[in-house]
Each structure stands twice: as structure tokens, then as C-alpha cells.
Amino acid sequence: MRITPISGAAALTLLLSACGSMMPAPMDKPMATVDNAALPEPVRVPAGEVQKMWTVGSGEITYECRDKKDAAGQYEWAFAGPVATLKDASGKAVGKYYGPPTTWEAMDGSKVGGKQVAVAPNQPGSIALQLVKAEPAVGSGAMQGVTYIQRLKTMGGVAPVAPCAMANKGEKKQVAYQADYVFYGR
């Protein structure tokens, strides 16, 4: 048997595809409950918050080569925005996540934005875990009453390792990622 090597990008795509089948339950079936006490303290939701929905988002994060803030003549890959499909445990699309501005939108048209409250490191090669304080929802539906959103179980999504310099300033690169998005309300 001959084994053919694959690139890092291909390996990440295979990993994300395999993990896509391990999604949490949708709202019409029992769902796993997040054990906030087991999470890093910065990304725990405040006491009294109730888990409303758990989805898995998979898509891409766009980074742009830009001037490094407060560092004249230096450049960095800066977060430019996400685009992801939110799915339930059966793999059915139940919404999308995009930005800027950061927005989670359910298939029923209701949507919510928010501001990052905290992050916590995750495994190397994966974007940080995150806690977002939601703004009031627009429209009636699944996002109505959402107060906090957690980004957990992240895979991929870190800034490119490709050089970022004056020569490629303004260049954009998309990086594959996956994360659980857990929505809370009162």
C-alpha cells in the first residue's frame, strides 16, 4: 500500500470534515449542557444564564495584512471577519455567523451581535475560546433573548504564517476553522 503525503491545509480540511459529524444536539432533541465550571474562568457565563442553543460553526476567518498598531513600519495579519454556517446535531443548517459587524443569524431571520468580554487560550493552532455579551436581538425567533454567546472547542482559524510586509499590505487570506457556539439567555 502506498501512502501519499498531504499538505497541512488538506489535513486541516480532513480533520474539520471528520469533526463535523460530532455536533451537539439541536433544540428539538436533548442537548449536552456546557459545564461552565470546567471552562477557563474568563469564558464562563455569569450565574443565572440558561443555555438556549448549541451549534457548530464551520467556515473561514479572513485575515488582512495591515500596519501593526502602534508599531511604525511593522505589519501583521489582522482579523478582518468570519463567515461560517451554524449547524445542529443532524448537520442541518440552522443559521450563519458573519461580520463585520459580528453577527449570528438564525434561519428564521432573527439575529444578534455582541461585544467580546473575554478570551482564553486553546490548543496550539486554534483560535482562542471566547465569551461575547450579546446586544438586543433584531427580529423574533431563535436569537430573541440571547444574552451571552460562548465560542468553544475551536479548531484552526489562527492567522496565516505567510509573511506580512509592505509588499503584500492589503492582501487577504482565508483560514478554515470550526467552533461550537453556545447561546444563553435568562
Results as ranks from 00 to 15, higher is better:
A137F: 04
D180P: 01
T55N: 13
D88M: 04
T62N: 06
K92P: 02
A84G: 06
A167T: 12
V112P: 00
V43Y: 05
T33W: 02
E76S: 07
A84H: 05
K133Q: 15
L12V: 08
G156V: 05
P136R: 01
I149Q: 02
M31D: 08
P124E: 14
K96S: 13
G185L: 09
R186G: 11
V138C: 00
P82G: 02
Q74K: 15
W104E: 04
R66G: 04
C65H: 06
A118P: 02
P24T: 07
A38S: 15
K173H: 06
D28Y: 11
E60K: 14
A134S: 12
G73H: 08
L131P: 00
T154R: 05
A179C: 09
A179W: 05
V119Q: 14
G157V: 01
M23T: 14
N168Q: 10
M53C: 06
I127L: 11
P160D: 06
M166W: 03
W104Q: 08
R66K: 15
K133L: 10
K52C: 06
Q144V: 00
S7I: 03
M1D: 10
Y184G: 06
L39N: 01
G109R: 04
N36V: 09
S21V: 12
T85W: 03
Y75N: 01
V182P: 04
A118I: 06
G141F: 01
I149C: 04
V45T: 07
I3E: 13
S7M: 07
M143L: 14
A72R: 11
D180G: 09
T103H: 03
M1K: 11
K133F: 00
G8C: 07
G157D: 10
G91D: 08
A93S: 13
E60Y: 14
S126T: 09
A137H: 01
D180Y: 09
E60I: 12
K92E: 15
G48H: 10
A165I: 03
P124S: 12
V146G: 00
G114P: 07
